[in-house]
Computed example of a mutant assay.
Amino acid sequence: MELDDLPQEILINIFSRLPPKSLGKCRCLAKSYRDKLSTPHFIKSHLTRKPHQENLLLITPSYSVRSICTIKDDAIWRKLELPGDWSPVVGSCDGLVLLINKGFEKFLVNPITLQMVKVPNSPLALDRDESVCLAGFGYDSCSDDYKVVTLSHYDTINKPRPNDIFVDVYSVKKGVWKRLDSYPYDHPVELSHGAFVNGAIHWLASSREPGYQSVIAAFNLADEVFVEIPVPRGVDVRDFAFSKLVALGGCLCIIDDQGNSPTNVRIMKEYGLDDSWTKFSIHADYEWDMAKPLCLIGDEDVVLVTEGETLVVYNRTLETLRDMVVDGGPGMAIIGCTFVESLVSPALISA
């Protein structure tokens, strides 16, 4: 019996167990294979099969994009042939990464297939020379759509409504931008891109209530509304100025970095539950500034990228730091994120 003689459901089951790179080779065997392995149904089936390997995507000090497919010491990274200079990594979801180049253009990229699609500029966007814009990226399971969300405001007193925050949402499937009615908070606390966890994009924000205490604002992609997530106990909610909010191992994470040792890291193990926050502290024997934790290696090690553009690994049990070795030397990066290997195409616009 030849492979083509097997029932369709068995074929799909077999292929869905292969890694994306192997599937790419299978697509080249015959047109029938290419057609079978390129349908939205198969791509979704492959994506939902767990577990998926978590990889690192990094922007180097030379503004090139590199990926590390095995996150461990003595890792090997490869340069992604993406033309141009890149800096901000907005975030990733289902194997797609939202990147911004030095010309402030946004691109959705699949680091495995190297497909990339430009996200059009919003017709409502503020002049970038006179404004600040933060972005977030994630998946809306209700509409089966990927969305880009931006928070923007004027950065000059010469413009009208300088205190207003504008919320714009881009539907990847529909290929259209829209502006929401209002932003329910006074201003973002940190000027960084949003963290996507559990169907929502999260930012640290300042409440409009008396006292202007800081809150975790979650933008639900399905309902397109903001809700508040409980903050960790023991955190001073009056001021998050020295805190950063990221996604770590699929969980919401707050880093409280006062510029000296130790740096406190809190992880919300069960989304939305205020008593599920856990804490560990990073103790350093030398002066350093941490930018953000990137990923977990097993139960003990955390990969971090420092303000000094060095990749380091912190062991939570031994409380030790070591350089992450990449291609025989210490890894260097200015920013990064994790992504899973997938066949999801950034070209999802409906006909």
Rank of each mutant, 00 (worst) to 15 (best):
V302A: 00
E228G: 08
A291I: 08
N315D: 14
V225T: 14
G259K: 11
Q213I: 10
V302Q: 01
F280D: 09
E300L: 12
E270G: 09
I255E: 03
W277T: 06
V215F: 04
I267H: 02
K244Y: 07
F226E: 00
A291K: 10
A222D: 00
G272E: 07
C295I: 03
I267Y: 01
E309W: 09
L304Q: 06
D285A: 15
V237N: 11
G259V: 13
V305Y: 00
P232C: 10
P232Y: 06
F240N: 01
V305S: 05
Y212T: 11
L248N: 01
L296I: 09
A222K: 02
S281Q: 14
T306G: 12
F242L: 12
Y314M: 09
K292P: 00
F226I: 01
D256V: 15
S261F: 11
L296W: 11
A217V: 08
G298F: 12
Y314L: 09
G249M: 04
N264H: 15
D223C: 03
Y271P: 03
D256R: 14
G234M: 11
S206A: 10
Y271T: 03
Y271F: 12
K244N: 09
E209P: 10
E309L: 09
N315E: 11
V227S: 08
G272R: 07
E270V: 13
P232T: 11
C253R: 03
C295G: 03
L245F: 04
E309A: 11
Q258P: 04
S261H: 13
V313W: 02
I282Y: 04
G249I: 03
T310I: 13
